[in-house]
Design a protein around this nucleic acid. Structure first.
Length: 289
DNA sequence: AGGCATGTTACAGG
DNA sequence: ACCTGTAACATGCC
């Protein structure tokens, strides 16, 4: 589930549930994630209070008291599931309905006081959870240091874009996927952005017109914002933020739509699927130049 | 059975 | 050293 909008949705729902709560206990069922996690490491935050959660790109940053930071990345299939024991009976809200405890892909469990439990579940184990000390600037953290600007910030503007293209020979899709250029986009949203911008994913960046660059920037921001409002996109294994499904997949124009007709009203071309940089790429050969 | 999957990165080759 | 493309990671689904 996790590109920028999905991570943002997770961040908001998590913060609503566990901000200002203190961790009582952590159980690791399988710490063999992208990086190995050990009890010894995670136990450092037991007894500490969660002050706030931030999102940077696709990373979640959990700020705990005493300058402890927990960095999490969801990889391809990571999720945080929320469970409140004492409210299971009520079933008034989707947050409290499910009993997630028995899922075999539960990797780590965080028990907060107030009977709130957060479960990190990850089928493919490409995600990770890691503790960091906050010494100086969070920007110095290894994972965050190499990231380009947030696409929703003013740092992503025409001037930045244009300047970055100098000397580059790549195609536009790989560039948008490159987290050093802009951080937070992934395969789904890049396909959708390029469709709306009427730019072919294979187009070399050196051949982009100024107007096309402006469209790409505009639709990057618009599509991401819309997706966040819709609760992100839930594909296949659905369950987005915390049991709640996202709705943005209903608005996909090209992703996963090979063999379907182009959604532009004046076009009846069939959406094509090709591979660029090892990833599935979808486009309309008539509308995207 | 084989191909494919929302991400990142180590490595090879230019 | 830089730029670019590919393979690998672990697991499930069609």
């Amino acid at each position: 589930m996790p590109e920028l909008p999905e991570v943002e949705v997770v961040k908001r729902s998590l913060e609503k549930e566990i901000k200002n709560l203190t961790i009582q206990k952590i159980k690791i069922f399988d710490g063999d994630l992208r990086y190995k996690v050990k009890n010894q490491e995670l136990n450092k935050i037991v007894g500490l209070k969660l002050l706030k959660i931030q999102r940077r790109s696709k990373y979640l940053l959990f700020f705990f008291s005493k300058k402890n930071l927990m960095v999490a990345h969801l990889g391809m299939t990571g999720k945080f599931l929320i469970e409140r024991k004492n409210r299971l009976k009520q079933k008034t809200s989707f947050y409290y309905q499910a009993d997630y405890t028995k899922n075999k892909h539960n990797r780590i469990e965080f028990l907060f006081h107030d009977n709130v439990k957060i479960i990190y579940n990850d089928i493919r184990k490409f995600g990770f959870i890691k503790l960091e000390r906050i010494n100086k600037n969070i920007c110095d953290i290894k994972f965050l240091k190499i990231l380009g600007p947030e696409p929703l910030s003013n740092e992503l503007n025409f001037k930045y874009f244009k300047k970055y293209l100098v000397g580059k020979k790549r195609n536009i899709k790989s560039l948008l996927m490159d987290q050093k250029f802009i951080s937070g986009l992934g395969n789904i949203y890049v396909n959708e952005i390029l469709f709306k911008s009427k730019v072919r994913p294979s187009k070399k960046v050196s051949r982009l017109k100024d107007s096309e660059i402006k469209y790409i920037i505009f639709y990057t921001k618009r599509i991401l914002k819309n997706a966040i409002i819709k609760g992100g996109s839930s594909i296949k294994d659905f369950s987005n933020s915390t049991g709640k499904q996202g709705k943005f997949q209903q608005h996909f124009n090209v992703y996963g739509k090979q063999h379907e007709e182009c959604s532009n009203t004046d076009c009846n071309k069939i959406i094509k699927k090709i591979v660029i940089g090892g990833r599935a790429s979808f486009f309309c050969s008539k509308c995207q130049k």
